[in-house]
């Protein structure tokens, strides 16, 4: 054959991508469970879930490297190679951010006031949902590029809702005259970092939409 076009290797890459998306979905869920454990002051559960997040992050790195090796080893067109590597590179920021947010909770031992807990739970729900939509966008990007645009719109709406929750939570943090400024700033930082996970998902979605437009002639 003039070029290596075996569909077996394509299936191998697709299988690895499926593994990657599955681990991504799991890390989003573990993050929500870890946050709930932290809010409920269930230290043991939080520690176990943080370990699970660390393990999933390492696993995601490993799968990403495997896919990159497969991609570089194949005679793919530059556009295809760039599209798949770009997808992985941008999506990989999400598990990294989830890991750092969860680890910071433990390191800073943030004292979270009760009125704030509902909004944080809601934010973590939005993160799980955003990751789910992002996985659908990625699959559409790989197989049905025409569907990417609608899914990206769906993700943008979700990110907007997350922004509203984030703003409400920050307003609540500062609407407490007897709370120390340092504590307020610490809580604001935490809310910003959790909210930024949805922002990252939206950024990846936008990037995939631009890349998919190239393929819709």
């Amino acid at each position: 054959m003039f070029f290596k076009g075996a569909s077996g290797r394509e299936k191998q890459i697709q299988a690895k991508l499926d593994q990657y998306f599955d681990a991504l979905r799991q890390i989003g869920c573990r993050h929500r469970e870890a946050l709930i454990g932290y809010l409920d002051q269930d230290e043991q559960s939080f520690t176990n879930l943080l370990e699970a997040i660390n393990a999933l992050e390492s696993r995601l790195d490993g799968i990403r490297r495997d896919i990159e090796m497969e991609i570089y080893g194949r005679r793919l067109l530059p556009d295809t190679r760039d599209d798949v590597l770009g997808l992985l590179e941008s999506i990989d920021k999400i598990p990294n951010r989830i890991q750092s947010v969860t680890r910071n909770l433990q390191l800073q031992n943030v004292d979270i006031p009760s009125p704030l807990k509902g909004d944080l739970r809601q934010l973590s729900d939005h993160i799980v949902e955003a990751i789910q939509i992002l996985i659908e966008i990625s699959n559409a990007f790989l197989s049905k590029p025409a569907e990417v645009r609608d899914l990206v719109r769906q993700l943008s709406r979700l990110e907007h809702e997350a922004d509203l929750v984030e703003e409400r939570a920050i307003a609540l943090v500062f609407d407490a005259p007897d709370r120390e400024l340092a504590h307020k700033i610490q809580l604001q930082g935490l809310i910003d970092r959790i909210g930024s996970i949805c922002d990252l998902a939206e950024d990846v979605g936008d990037r995939l939409m631009v890349a998919s437009l190239k393929r819709v002639l």
Partner: peptide, 15 residues
């Protein structure tokens, strides 16, 4: 537009 092609299949056909 009528027959959307998966990325890897499109790559193979283009090559």
């Amino acid at each position: 537009r009528r027959l959307p092609m998966p990325l890897f299949a499109l790559d193979r056909w283009l090559r």
